[in-house]
């Protein structure tokens, strides 16, 4: 486990959620675990704050939710990316790349 952790940049949580849901549907806890794994525990997110973000994405029609049964046999709510969500992910990913590149250039300039 790395000792260095970063707080999440404002507005990037949505991007991470969309990315994590790309392979298939997940319930909330699974999603939070996936984000931690994907970031190799660097990104520190308040697990609870995932839910408001999920509801917001659902409200915008980017994800859909349905109650199902988890691997452990318990009732859980699963989130799936919608077509609009996929499209949104592509846009946001491009935006992020441009943004990160720009920051990088600024930092590396002499």
């Amino acid at each position: 486990m790395s000792n260095e952790r970063s707080d999440l940049l404002q507005g990037t949580l949505d991007l991470l959620i969309l990315k994590s849901l790309l392979p298939g549907s997940l319930h909330g806890w699974g999603l939070s675990k996936r984000i931690r794994e994907l970031s190799r525990d660097v990104l520190q997110i308040n697990q609870g704050s995932l839910y408001p973000a999920l509801y917001r994405l659902e409200e915008r029609g980017l994800v859909r939710s349905a109650w199902g049964i988890s691997d452990e046999g318990r009732r859980a709510k699963f989130y799936t990316l919608s077509a609009a969500g996929r499209k949104q992910f592509a846009t946001e990913k491009a935006d992020w790349r441009r943004f990160a590149l720009a920051i990088e250039q600024v930092l590396e300039s002499t």
Binding site: N46, Q47, G48, Y51, P52, Y55, R56
Partner: peptide
């Protein structure tokens, strides 16, 4: 602790739903 106050998250969640 990792989750943060449930009540608070619920409030935020309700906000998200409007």
């Amino acid at each position: 602790a990792a989750f943060g106050g449930i009540e608070r998250q619920k409030d935020d969640a309700r906000d998200a739903i409007g």
